[in-house]
Amino acid sequence: DATRCSICQKTGEVLHEVSNGSVVHRLCSDSCFSKFRANK
């Protein structure tokens, strides 16, 4: 199964994995990581 970025939905390489309870968010770049943090 292809890994997909939680923010931009791009498949491919994942730079960050953030687990939040039972959910793991995968983020492909620092910019997506920043957006993820801002959205929480």
Rank of each mutant, 00 (worst) to 15 (best):
D1R: 08
D1K: 15
D1S: 11
D1Y: 10
D1V: 14
D1C: 14
A2D: 15
A2N: 15
A2K: 15
A2E: 12
A2G: 08
A2W: 07
A2R: 10
A2C: 15
T3H: 11
T3G: 14
T3P: 02
T3Q: 15
T3N: 13
T3I: 11
T3A: 04
T3K: 15
T3R: 11
T3E: 14
T3M: 15
T3W: 10
R4N: 14
R4I: 15
R4F: 15
R4Q: 03
R4H: 11
R4D: 12
R4M: 13
R4Y: 14
R4A: 07
R4K: 06
R4E: 07
R4L: 05
R4C: 12
R4T: 09
C5D: 01
C5A: 00
C5H: 03
C5I: 01
C5L: 01
C5S: 00
C5K: 01
C5V: 00
C5G: 00
C5F: 01
C5T: 01
S6L: 05
S6H: 09
S6P: 12
S6A: 14
S6V: 03
S6C: 02
I7L: 08
I7W: 07
I7F: 09
I7A: 05
I7K: 03
I7D: 04
I7V: 11
I7T: 07
I7R: 06
I7S: 05
I7G: 09
I7C: 03
C8W: 00
C8D: 00
C8S: 00
C8H: 02
C8T: 02
C8R: 01
C8L: 01
Q9E: 13
Q9C: 07
Q9N: 05
Q9W: 06
Q9G: 08
Q9F: 10
Q9V: 01
Q9M: 09
K10G: 10
K10V: 01
K10N: 02
K10L: 05
K10S: 06
K10A: 05
K10D: 03
K10F: 02
K10W: 03
T11W: 02
T11I: 07
T11G: 09
T11A: 05
T11C: 03
T11H: 14
T11F: 06
T11K: 04
T11L: 09
G12K: 09
G12F: 04
G12H: 07
G12D: 05
G12L: 06
G12A: 11
G12I: 07
G12N: 03
G12Q: 06
E13I: 03
E13L: 04
E13W: 01
E13N: 07
E13F: 13
E13G: 05
E13Q: 11
E13R: 08
E13T: 09
E13V: 05
V14P: 11
V14W: 02
V14G: 10
V14R: 04
V14F: 10
V14K: 03
V14S: 08
V14N: 10
V14I: 11
V14H: 01
V14Y: 03
V14M: 11
L15R: 13
L15G: 08
L15H: 12
L15N: 11
L15V: 11
L15D: 06
L15M: 14
H16V: 03
H16I: 01
H16N: 06
H16P: 02
H16M: 02
H16T: 04
H16C: 00
H16Q: 11
E17M: 04
E17P: 01
E17S: 08
E17A: 01
E17G: 02
E17F: 02
E17L: 01
E17Y: 00
E17C: 04
E17D: 06
E17R: 03
E17W: 00
E17I: 03
V18C: 07
V18P: 06
V18W: 06
V18L: 08
V18G: 03
V18F: 10
V18N: 04
V18T: 08
V18M: 06
V18H: 07
S19N: 13
S19A: 07
S19Y: 04
S19M: 09
S19P: 13
S19L: 06
S19E: 13
S19F: 09
S19T: 12
S19K: 15
N20Q: 12
N20P: 02
N20K: 09
N20E: 13
N20T: 13
N20F: 03
N20D: 15
N20W: 03
N20Y: 09
G21F: 04
G21I: 00
G21N: 02
G21A: 06
G21H: 06
G21Q: 13
G21C: 04
G21D: 12
S22A: 09
S22N: 13
S22M: 12
S22I: 08
S22E: 12
S22R: 09
S22V: 02
S22T: 12
S22K: 12
S22H: 11
S22F: 05
S22P: 11
S22G: 12
S22W: 03
V23K: 14
V23R: 12
V23N: 14
V23L: 05
V23I: 10
V23H: 14
V23Y: 08
V24Y: 09
V24R: 09
V24F: 05
V24K: 13
V24G: 06
V24S: 07
H25M: 09
H25D: 10
H25E: 15
H25Q: 11
H25R: 05
H25V: 03
H25F: 06
H25A: 09
H25N: 11
H25Y: 04
R26P: 10
R26A: 12
R26V: 04
R26M: 09
R26C: 05
R26K: 12
R26Y: 04
R26E: 05
R26G: 09
L27M: 13
L27C: 13
L27K: 05
L27N: 02
L27E: 04
L27W: 07
L27H: 04
L27I: 09
L27A: 04
L27S: 03
C28K: 01
C28R: 00
C28T: 00
C28E: 02
C28Q: 01
C28D: 02
C28V: 01
C28I: 00
C28M: 01
C28N: 01
C28G: 02
C28P: 02
S29N: 02
S29G: 05
S29Q: 03
S29P: 03
S29V: 02
S29Y: 00
S29F: 00
S29T: 01
D30S: 04
D30A: 04
D30R: 06
D30P: 04
D30G: 05
D30I: 01
D30K: 09
D30V: 04
D30Y: 00
S31T: 13
S31C: 08
S31R: 13
S31H: 08
S31Q: 13
S31Y: 11
S31F: 08
S31L: 11
S31P: 11
S31D: 14
C32P: 01
C32V: 01
C32Q: 04
C32S: 02
C32W: 00
C32I: 02
C32R: 01
C32D: 05
C32M: 02
C32E: 06
F33A: 14
F33P: 08
F33I: 10
F33K: 13
F33Y: 10
S34I: 09
S34V: 13
S34L: 11
S34G: 14
S34W: 08
S34R: 13
S34D: 15
S34H: 06
S34F: 08
S34C: 01
S34A: 15
S34K: 15
S34N: 12
S34T: 14
K35G: 10
K35E: 15
K35D: 13
K35N: 13
K35C: 00
K35H: 11
K35V: 12
K35T: 13
K35A: 14
K35Q: 14
K35M: 13
K35F: 13
K35R: 14
F36K: 03
F36L: 13
F36I: 11
F36T: 08
F36C: 03
F36Q: 12
F36S: 08
R37S: 13
R37D: 14
R37C: 10
R37P: 08
R37N: 14
R37F: 03
R37V: 06
R37K: 15
R37Y: 05
R37E: 15
R37M: 12
A38Q: 10
A38R: 07
A38Y: 04
A38T: 08
A38W: 04
A38H: 02
A38C: 02
A38M: 11
A38I: 07
A38K: 06
N39C: 05
N39L: 13
N39V: 13
N39P: 13
N39E: 14
N39F: 15
N39Q: 15
N39S: 12
N39I: 12
K40G: 15
K40H: 15
K40E: 13
K40R: 13
K40F: 09
K40Y: 10
